[in-house]
Amino acid sequence: MEKLTADAQLDASGLFCPEPVMLLHSRMRELASGQVLQVVATDPSTQRDIPKFCTFLGHELLQQSEQNQTYEYFIRKGDS
């Protein structure tokens, strides 16, 4: 898997739905279009929620992985 570089990070470890996506939404507003956010979460529902969030709001999910019940996402902010 390609090693991506993020412009910003969001650690949502230990938080449960809907908190990770609420924090993600807030954090994405702070980024410029084209910047990449790395998200780390422990809630399995983020595997469903974050891809839907990206599709709905026009962001690009660059990479999604899971290791030892920790979920990592790299998201490029779309034009908004």
Rank of each mutant, 00 (worst) to 15 (best):
F56L: 11
E72W: 06
D79N: 12
P44W: 13
A6Q: 13
Q9V: 11
E2K: 15
L15E: 14
P18H: 15
S45E: 11
G34P: 00
K52A: 09
Q38R: 14
D11L: 13
P18C: 14
E2A: 09
R27K: 12
C54L: 06
P20T: 06
L37W: 04
T5C: 07
S13V: 00
L24P: 00
T5K: 15
A6M: 10
F16G: 03
D49C: 14
F53L: 10
L37V: 01
Q35D: 01
D7L: 05
D43N: 11
K77V: 00
G78I: 07
R29C: 01
T5L: 13
A12F: 04
L15F: 14
F74P: 01
L61Q: 09
N68A: 11
C54H: 14
L61D: 04
Y71S: 03
H59C: 05
Y73D: 01
V36H: 02
L57P: 01
L4H: 12
R27D: 01
I75A: 02
Q69G: 04
R76L: 05
L31P: 00
Q63D: 07
G34I: 03
L23N: 09
R27W: 02
L31I: 01
E19L: 15
Q9H: 14
L24G: 02
D11R: 11
Q9G: 08
T55R: 15
K52Y: 08
Q67Y: 11
Q64N: 11
E19M: 14
A6Y: 13
S80P: 01
E19P: 06
L4V: 07
V40R: 10
H25C: 09
A6P: 03
Q35M: 02
T46P: 03
Q69A: 12
Q47R: 14
Q67D: 05
R27S: 02
Q9L: 12
F53G: 06
A12N: 07
S65M: 11
D11V: 09
F56T: 10
D43I: 02
S33E: 07
S45M: 13
L23R: 15
S80R: 15
H25W: 13
R76M: 03
E60M: 14
Q47D: 04
F74C: 02
G58N: 12
A6K: 15
S65Q: 14
E60W: 13
S26P: 00
G14V: 03
I50A: 12
L10P: 05
Q67N: 07
L4C: 06
M1L: 10
R76D: 03
M1W: 10
G14S: 07
S45W: 12
S26K: 12
L23D: 03
G78M: 11
E66N: 07
A32Y: 08
F53R: 14
Y71W: 08
A41S: 10
E19T: 15
M28K: 08
A41H: 05
S33I: 02
T46N: 06
V36E: 01
L24K: 12
L62P: 02
V36F: 02
M1F: 11
S65K: 14
Q67M: 06
A6V: 04
P51S: 09
F16S: 07
V21T: 12
F16D: 04
A32V: 02
A41P: 02
Q9F: 12
K52S: 07
L57Y: 13
L23V: 00
S45L: 14
L10W: 11
I50M: 14
S33M: 04
H25S: 13
L62N: 05
Q47P: 00
Q69S: 15
R29G: 01
K52H: 09
Q64S: 11
F53N: 08
P20S: 08
